[in-house]
Write a protein that binds this DNA or RNA. Structure first.
Lengths: 308, 308
DNA sequence: TAAATTTATAACCAAAACCTATAAGCAGCG
DNA sequence: CGCTGCTTATAGGTTTTGGTTATAAATTTA
C-alpha cells in the first residue's frame, strides 16, 4: 500500500471510471488499473466491481475508500504543518459559504485575502449548510463559513459574528408603522420565507415558533435578495440578516430592529478538527472581522437562534 | 512523501540513530538516510539534527513525526478494516493491563483468546493507567484493560465489570470482628496502601475521603498480593478488589463486604476512537465476561469509585 | 452486426529504492 | 596529538517499481 495507490482509489471512486480517473490523476489508464489491482491483491479483497460502464465500489471498497481519504488527509495535514512552520501560506483554500452569507461577506474580504497571500489559490463554493458539513468531514472542503452552533463532534467552530435579524416590511403592511418589532409580531400574515434547506428558513421558523402564516402567494425564495425585492414590490414582509441591508439599515424606515434580546445568527468559520493551517485561519478571521462593523462581532449580546 | 518514508521517520525518532533505525526497519543504513534526506528536501525543512551520537528531531521535526504517526495509524486502520470485513482476526494485538488487574484477569482469558484466534500474536504489557492512556493515544498499544471512567475525548471505553472492593483484616485487628464494613471504617488505623501511581491507591483514598491513617510502618506496596500477605502476617488491614480474592470470598471470615451502596471499580476495555477491529474487541469482551462470575458484570449495581 | 466504449494485458522503459563499499566527521582516550 | 570507535554521508551498481504505448478482450449501443 502507498499513498499513490490510495490517491488512485479515491480518484476512481470520484470518477467511477478507470480512464477518467487516470486522466484526472495525470497518468495513463493502464497505470491506474494496475495499481488498483495491486492494492486489491495486497489487501485480498475486491474493491471495485468493473462493468462496461465503469467501476463501482464494493461494500468493502466503500469503507476502504473512506479510510483512504482519511489517510490522504492526514498526509496533507503533514505537508500543511510544515508550511505553517515555515510561515508559508500557500497552496489551495477550498471555502464553502452558505448562500445567505456569500453575497454580503465574501466580497468584503476576498480581495484582501488574495492580496495578503498571492500564492494562495482560493476556491469558493456556495453551498447549503448540510452540504458544507458533509464536505468538511470528507475533506473536500478546507473551511466553511456558515451559521452555528452545529453540535458536530468532528467540526471545530470559530465564531465571528452575532448578526442581528431585522424585519423588512412593505410600505402598505401594518407592521410598516412600527418602530421596533418582537418575535410575537411574526404571527402577522404575509411573511416571505426562504425555500426548504436553507438554514435561514429554519431560523426564521424557530424565531416565530413555527407559527408562520404565509401570504396568499406561496413563493419561497432561494436568496435573500429575492425576498427583499418581493417585499419592495408586493405586500408582505420578511426577515433579513443585518449584513444584507448594511447600507440602508439606518436610513430605511421600513427596516425594523427587534426589541432586546435581539435575535442574532452566530456566523462562524468551521474546520475539521485538527486543521493545522492556523495562520491562514487567523488571517481569514481577522480579514472578515475587519470588513464588518464592530457591533456585529461575536459575543456582544443578543439571543442566538439555532437552525438545527 | 510516501508511507515508507514516514515509517523510517518514526523509526528514527524511536531509535534516535540512523543505523539502529535502519536495522529495525530491515533496510541498510544508507537506504534510510537517503529517504529521510529526500523527505526533508521535499518538505523543505530539516527534520533531524545529526550529531555524532545520533539524530535528534528538530522542533518542526517533532511535529512532523507526530503527524506521521497519525498517517501510519490511519493506513494501519485501513488494513485492519479489510481484515475485519474478511472476518479475519489476525496480526498483532498489543494489550496494556494495569498491575492490579493483570494477575487476576489475564490468566482467565489468555488461553481462550489464542485458541480462538491462533493467527493473532498477542503482546501483553503490565503498565500504569497513565502510561496505557499515553500509549493508546500514540498508537503504541491497541487495547487497554484498566479502570474507568477516564474522561478522555480520544479514548473509547467499553465497560466490562463493576468489581466490588472488599476489606481484608488481619485476625488481631478490631475490624476482624465485623460482619460488614462501611467507608467510615477506613478512618481506623492500620490501612495498607498501594504505592503512588497506581489507580487502586487513588480509589482507596477517594473511598475513605483522604482520611487514611497508616500504621507505624509505612510500607507502600506495588501489588495487591503483597498487601494481602502483609495483612496475613502483620497487624492492619487493606482493601482488595473482588477478583483478587475470588476463591476465598465466601470462606474467609476476614474478608468483609461493604454495606450498600457497594463501592466498585469499573473495569473497561479502552481503545482509541476509530478502532476498527470490532470482531476482536467483541471477542475479547465476551471472553473476559465469560471468565468471571456474572455478578461482577458492569451495570449491576454499586457506586463507582473514580481514581482521577 | 458493426461501432464505440471500457477494462485488462503485454512489452518495454525510466525512475526510484536498495545494497555494498567506503568516505568523512567527531568524541574520547592513551 | 593521533589513534580507535562511533556516527552519518556519498558513490556505483543492481533490483524493483511504476510508468508508457500498443493492443486485446468484453460488453453496451446504434
Amino acid at each position: 500500500m502507498n499513498l499513490q495507490q490510495l490517491g488512485y482509489l479515491v480518484a476512481l471512486d470520484t470518477h467511477r471510471q478507470f480512464g477518467l480517473a487516470a486522466e484526472k490523476s495525470f497518468v495513463s489508464q493502464p497505470a491506474l488499473s494496475v495499481q488498483v489491482q495491486k492494492l486489491e491483491e495486497e489487501l485480498g479483497v475486491l474493491l471495485f466491481d468493473r462493468t462496461q460502464r465503469g467501476a463501482e465500489p464494493t461494500a468493502v471498497g466503500a469503507q476502504v475508500i473512506a479510510q483512504a481519504r482519511r489517510v490522504l488527509h492526514e498526509a496533507q495535514q503533514l505537508r500543511e504543518l510544515v508550511q505553517v512552520a515555515k510561515g508559508e501560506v500557500v497552496g489551495e483554500l477550498r471555502l464553502g459559504v452558505i448562500s445567505t452569507l456569500a453575497p454580503y461577506l465574501v466580497p468584503r474580504f476576498l480581495v484582501g485575502l488574495s492580496t495578503a497571500y498571492p500564492n494562495l489559490r482560493v476556491h469558493i463554493e456556495e453551498l447549503r449548510s448540510e452540504e458544507i458539513m458533509l464536505r468538511l468531514k470528507d475533506y473536500r472542503l478546507d473551511v466553511g463559513l456558515l451559521v452555528t452552533p452545529l453540535d458536530d463532534r468532528l467540526l471545530h467552530e470559530l465564531p465571528l459574528l452575532d448578526e442581528p435579524f431585522l424585519l423588512l416590511a412593505s410600505e402598505d403592511h401594518p407592521l410598516a408603522a412600527r418602530a421596533t418589532v418582537s418575535p410575537a409580531d411574526l404571527a402577522s400574515p404575509g411573511l416571505w420565507l426562504m425555500q426548504e434547506g436553507h438554514c435561514f428558513r429554519n431560523q426564521v421558523l424557530n424565531l416565530c415558533g413555527r407559527a408562520a402564516s404565509t401570504g396568499a402567494v406561496a413563493y419561497e425564495s432561494g436568496s435573500i435578495e429575492t425576498l427583499k425585492e418581493l417585499v419592495r414590490h408586493h405586500h408582505g414582509y420578511t426577515l433579513v440578516p443585518e449584513l444584507a441591508v448594511l447600507d440602508e439599515v439606518d436610513s430605511n424606515p421600513l427596516l425594523k430592529r427587534f426589541v432586546a434580546p435581539t435575535p442574532v445568527r452566530e456566523v462562524s468559520l468551521v474546520v475539521h478538527h485538527g486543521f493545522v493551517r492556523t495562520t491562514l485561519l487567523t488571517a481569514l478571521r481577522e480579514l472578515i472581522l475587519a470588513s464588518v462593523p464592530t457591533r456585529l462581532r461575536a459575543g456582544k449580546s443578543g439571543e442566538k437562534i439555532r437552525w438545527r
